[in-house]
Design a binder for these strands. Structure first.
Lengths: 132, 132
DNA sequence: GTTTATTATATGTTTTAATCATATAGATGT
DNA sequence: ACATCTATATGATTAAAACATATAATAAAC
């Protein structure tokens, strides 16, 4: 748990805000990357690590997410044994996967609007000016 | 779990997008409401239920969150036995709580920007026009 | 005046997502 | 032969949130 009740830091507490990631944010990025072209897990890790917003992904999470996508019919996989190094499981998007990505984007848009409404209410309370 | 592998719905799957809430979104609303004026849990529930973005809160979650806030020094509480009905535990914000709200807002702004960057990348991929 | 509904707070249990830790193994360089 | 890099995978734990239910005082209805 959090419960960092360090009496020497009376201002510190828990409950998540100055922390990192948000729920279900990696998944749409994965689908978006896969919608561009098929890729295997390691490649996807590297691409995610190039993006400040998605870097540092846990490999366990990545591979499990990809298998879950496959179980859900969003992608399909096949082994690529050609080329150097160990075999790679290459994931390719399905039509359902693209559809699902679009659904996810709708959800992200509404989430973004929701955050905007919160920030607007906050601004009205604390920066009585600043209508943007 | 999700795993709704209903073969009659080949397009349905899980992994959260067309669902509801997002992590840690109620907490800042609670702090914002309390920053306006002290209130007790039931009042806060009613206010949250008036807002499309926050309605339907689970009372268990609400009361536990408020106690957690108090443990973390973000609010302090006292019983109000005056007036009708059962006693109410009234929560009042502390200076640390206000500070924490501001920290949360910073986090929400960066989250919002992150979502914006995702949507922009998505747009470049799918709506080759639309630069906004 | 006993029952029912409303106001109000609280806690035990379960589920779910995500993280942490670790295992496996082929290929390549030294 | 040994270490490193590429690549995938799984077991275990944690943390947030949801689900279910308990308690109790007051107010209204019958």
């Amino acid at each position: 748990m959090c419960h960092s009740h360090d009496p020497s830091h009376p201002g510190s507490s828990c409950c998540s805000p100055p922390s990192g990631r948000m729920q279900g944010f990696i998944q749409p990025w994965l689908l978006l990357l896969l919608s561009e072209k098929p890729a295997h897990g390691y490649q996807l890790t590297e691409k995610l690590n190039q993006n400040e917003d998605t870097k540092g992904i846990d490999p366990g999470f990545l591979y499990r997410t990809l298998r879950q996508f496959e179980e859900d019919g969003l992608v399909k996989s096949s082994w690529d044994t050609k080329g150097a190094g160990p075999a790679r499981r290459v994931y390719e998007m399905t039509a359902d996967g693209v559809e699902y990505l679009h659904a996810w984007v709708k959800h992200i848009r509404t989430t973004r609007e929701r955050l905007g409404r919160f920030l607007k209410t906050y601004s009205l309370r604390f920066n009585q000016s600043d209508s943007k």
